[in-house]
Amino acid sequence: MPDATGLELIAGELREADADAVLDTLHFRGRATLHVRPAAVPGTLERLRGKGYGFLASVHGVDYFPEEPRLGVIYELLDMRSIDRISVKTRVHTEDPHVPSVTPAWPTADLQEREAYDMFGVIFDGHPDLRRSHMPEDYEGHPQRRDFPIGGEPILYTHNEPREPGWWEGEGS
């Protein structure tokens, strides 16, 4: 992990390239996080790749409800040579949940961005095949959001399917 000073140096370099790319830096329990603007995500990852963080270990979504901006996307980068990790975080509002996709540059993000879209409703602009990954195609809502209730849907078995009329017709019909 870069220490607090190293993280500030990286943030400084990123700010030199793009003045308002980095919103904040966070160093917590030895874990370095760069908080960047959504539009600056691909550029930031690319610059960090140039600094050796060449492996995108994970892309995942977070919901910061009730804080705003609510939705977060976190990119965990790994430098396989010096075994160094850094996280890049971006946050978007639910009304405008657009983040540029990094799939063209990092093929591993494909399924993981689809999962974040499925579970949180973050729209990754430029993703080649942005479909729901886990939930059914016709599912409404994004179940990992904090205000999405647990339960409330009938669990369908062969024996109770006739007693749950209209479940396939969707709302309003």
């Binding site: 917590f28 270990a57 995942h60 977070v62 976190i74 996280s87």
Partner: peptide, 20 residues
Amino acid sequence: PGEVYYPIESPRGELGCFVR
């Protein structure tokens, strides 16, 4: 409060757990 990503080596590769 905080966020942590903790990776370990599972039989299939890097298993990372993110907890907020």
